[in-house]
């Protein structure tokens, strides 16, 4: 069982950036209105923020990082590590973290690398960076988490209505007075096909025919480079794995539900999130959501929810959060983190 705790790590700050362009799932022909209203009612997503053509995930990340660094008052030369958790890199190679080191003006002595994870990525990013900072040799670091998941050219209506784009940056610092963080991790590669871009990797190298739209098993025309989602498989996985993982983490941390101020889950869709909440018997007021206004923002959905729904509460006093991500892989991870008035930028639009 992969469970872990981290000592000496302070959650110093968070900034989230979304594209300025808002797209409504209710923006449709009048004859489609009832159908779209049913969709919005059930997936819980009315509006999504979508990158303009040419706007990359790293552009949002750069903006968020600069605002957070300024808010923290950190000298760029004092940032020792930069980790990027994304499945929307600027290039296949090199890693986006290294490019961002230069764009942000960080020192050449900065440690930088990418982690290829999606919806489960936020707790993983915190854990990897926190592990490096815990010993104290590396003192300050940033973890950039998020994706550009929207694909306005897609003909898959289910996909089109689901994803929004966002980048977040979290700052961690070595601090021997900080409370412990607790983590629980899981992986099930047998479900790798549930969320997949089939072509373009080493297993299925990109060929010209992958750029043509061909009908899939469900009849929807897709390119080989488009995401394919198996909705029922993702639902089965999420409601099977996440509630017991949360219970296991609470037991590992010797923490009751009442000792957690907020449970922040990956924003998958309303049906999945409501089922997880009900299975865990959590009151709705302790489970904030950003789905309605931002959609499923992949690994950014947990920190985006913190920014847009919890900023005032977190700035008013110490709070304990249980945060949980789950999805592509299949992969999941949860963590318990105490925040004591960190630097929290208001939502940034770019």
């Amino acid at each position: 069982m992969a469970q872990a705790l981290l000592a000496n790590i302070r959650f110093a700050g968070l900034a989230s950036c979304v594209p300025r362009r808002a797209v409504s799932n209710l923006d449709c022909a009048p004859e489609k209105r009832l159908e779209r209203e049913r969709l919005v009612r059930n997936i819980g997503i009315q509006t999504r923020r979508v990158c303009e053509t040419g706007q990359a995930f790293s552009d949002l990340a750069e903006r968020a990082a600069n605002e957070l660094i300024a808010g923290l008052g950190w000298a760029k030369g004092d940032i020792d590590a930069l980790i990027v958790v994304t499945q929307s890199p600027d290039y296949v190679i090199p890693a986006t973290a290294i490019i961002l080191q230069d764009r942000l003006g960080l020192a050449h002595t900065t440690l930088a690398f990418d982690i290829n994870l999606g919806c489960s990525g936020y707790p993983y990013g915190l854990y990897v960076l926190g592990s490096m900072l815990s010993a104290g040799c590396i003192r300050r670091g940033l973890v950039v988490v998020g994706d550009k998941s929207s694909n306005p050219e897609s003909l898959d209506n289910g996909l089109l209505s689901l994803f929004g784009d966002a980048a977040t940056v979290t700052a961690l610092a070595h601090d021997e007075s900080a409370p412990r963080m607790y983590f629980d991790f899981g992986s099930d590669g047998s479900g790798y096909e549930a969320i997949i871009i089939p072509a373009g990797g080493q297993r299925v190298p990109l060929r010209p025919e992958h750029l043509e739209r061909l009908p899939g098993k469900d009849g929807i025309p897709r390119k080989g480079t488009d995401v394919i989602l198996d909705g029922p498989a993702i639902l089965n996985f999420s409601i099977r794995e996440v509630p017991p993982a949360v219970e296991a983490l609470l037991a590992f941390a010797a923490c009751s539900r009442d000792q957690v101020d907020y449970f922040v889950f990956h924003q998958a869709n309303r049906m999945i999130n409501e089922t997880i909440r009900r299975k865990l018997a959590l009151p709705a007021e302790k489970v904030p959501a950003s789905l309605h206004d931002f959609g499923n923002t992949s690994s950014a959905s947990v920190p985006v929810t913190v920014t847009v729904r919890l900023r005032e509460a977190l700035l008013s006093g110490p709070r304990r959060l249980l945060m949980s991500g789950f999805g592509v892989g299949l992969s999941w991870a949860s963590c318990i983190v105490d925040l004591d008035r960190p630097v929290l930028s208001p939502l940034i639009e770019a």
Partner: peptide, 28 residues
């Protein structure tokens, strides 16, 4: 009239929450 992917998700949730039974997309 509305037997689509959204309906399938709703029925899977209903079977789990109302009856404690897991059914999959393949089952449906």
């Amino acid at each position: 009239p509305e037997w689509d992917s959204l309906a399938a998700l709703g029925v899977i949730v209903m079977c789990d929450m109302e009856y404690g039974v897991t059914i999959t997309g393949s089952d449906l």
